[in-house]
Design a protein around this nucleic acid. Structure first.
Lengths: 239, 239
DNA sequence: CATTTTTCATTTGTCAGACAATTAAATGTC
DNA sequence: GACATTTAATTGTCTGACAAATGAAAAATG
């Protein structure tokens, strides 16, 4: 019943395991493609396919030239954001996750950061949030831009917690539902309401009032969820 | 300053965009490698390298034979768990995230699920938690097995929230620090303490007392963090 | 006609060999 | 010593070939 995986997949796994186990250090150079094809007793093309798999996961980078080759990549949080967001967005759309569920997850996670952010947010984080709030109030702003600014606002809130692990995990949850948010047409009235909550959140963070932030986020979660649901009810199209 | 990306990377991006944008539907068959190499005006090897990149991200699967080819994969939460955990674990080790930071993130996220889980946990979830608690009390249990059971216990707690998005995001945070946890030698006394907290958490979940769960998780977070720190202080080796 | 077997066309997997492009080091030149 | 040239190593790409898998069509069988 077991599908024998391709050679290139096997070789990729072998090298991946060496990296994960620490057998290969960061920055270390892998043997050249020619050497690898000898070691594994396969052709160079097969080795190359294996290396491309690893490159797709940002586990290695390659460089041409005399001293070139494949090097074990240092996986940075910033590099991982993109993949995390892409994967999360695909998971939401491909599994038909409804807006309410996505919203619930997003705000639950965000509220987890709130106390930490209230404690540690810097002036920079507050400034970013204020700037985004200002942008959100501009008259001619498109719904897409409003959503993008909303994401930036919440990113600043999360980053305020000063915990890169949290920021990384949240990136997926917060940004992945942006496409879903974009389907909502924000009326002037709903924008005003959201901006009001954003302002109150920024104020509460500034005065380091964790309880207030938590409560306001709960309000925002409820309001956002309600908005999304009313849109879903209005046009239950299946295209 | 821009490094021109490989052809295979460009082609992979082109197809990836088509998938993400919904231009290619789930289950849809891509053109054959020969056709793709014509369309993109490259050799078949280059197309294959591109396809392997996409396969590494679980975006496509391939099948040999007459009606075979590359098909757009439905990305399932279960499939994404593995990658999420691997990536998170690498991020932690490669960026030298300290135990306290990882713990903080983990328990902050877990506390975010607590109220939902208290509300929705099923008998199944409770049974899993009780079973793991029993396992954790076995005398001959290795530290690794104790940690694995710990992970299983907390997974059940998170899954109890009944939100697949949350479960997915948390998988990385909870499981990625298992390697870090494994470096801790659990004394009989510390195991007893942890098991006591686990039991109390299960009890609180059973009686749907969200506040109690939250408070107990805070205790567990503080205790775990303290354990990790004492280990780090004891052996500040750099091997 | 129904069923089984065989053949066949299609497609991916793998291999071998070649050449282009890139890059740093070695070498030569002044 | 500074600068230009050559060279060797390495990845990127192309071409052509064959093996392996697999479903569909064709043929044989009853």
């Amino acid at each position: 019943m077991k599908n024998a995986p391709d050679l290139s997949a096997q070789i990729a796994k072998s090298i991946r395991d060496a990296i994960v186990s620490g057998d290969l250090d960061i920055g270390e150079r892998l043997p050249s493609e020619a050497e690898l094809s000898e070691q594994f007793n396969v052709s160079r093309s097969t080795v190359r396919e294996a290396l491309k798999r690893l490159a797709a996961q940002s586990l290695i980078r390659t460089q041409r030239g005399a001293t070139g080759g494949a090097f074990v990549n240092k996986l940075r949080f910033e590099d991982a954001y993109g993949q995390q967001i892409t994967t999360s967005a695909l998971l939401l759309s491909m599994n038909a996750v409804d807006f309410v569920t996505a919203c619930e997850a997003r705000f639950a996670l965000e509220r987890a950061c709130a106390p930490l952010s209230a404690d540690r947010r810097t002036a920079d984080h507050l400034a970013t949030m204020r700037a985004e709030i200002t942008r959100q109030g501009q008259p001619g702003l498109s719904d897409e831009s409003f959503c993008a600014s909303d994401v930036a606002f919440h990113r600043a809130l999360v980053d305020g917690a000063g915990n890169p692990v949290l920021s990384y995990q949240l990136a997926g949850a917060v940004e992945a539902i942006e496409p879903l948010m974009n389907m909502i047409t924000f009326t002037a009235r709903s924008r005003d309401h959201i901006i009001g909550l954003h302002t109150a959140i920024a104020d509460a963070l500034e005065s380091q009032d964790a309880a207030a932030v938590d409560s306001l986020l709960a309000d925002l979660a409820a309001y956002t969820s309600k908005l999304g649901q009313s849109v879903a009810d209005a046009k239950p199209s299946k295209t």
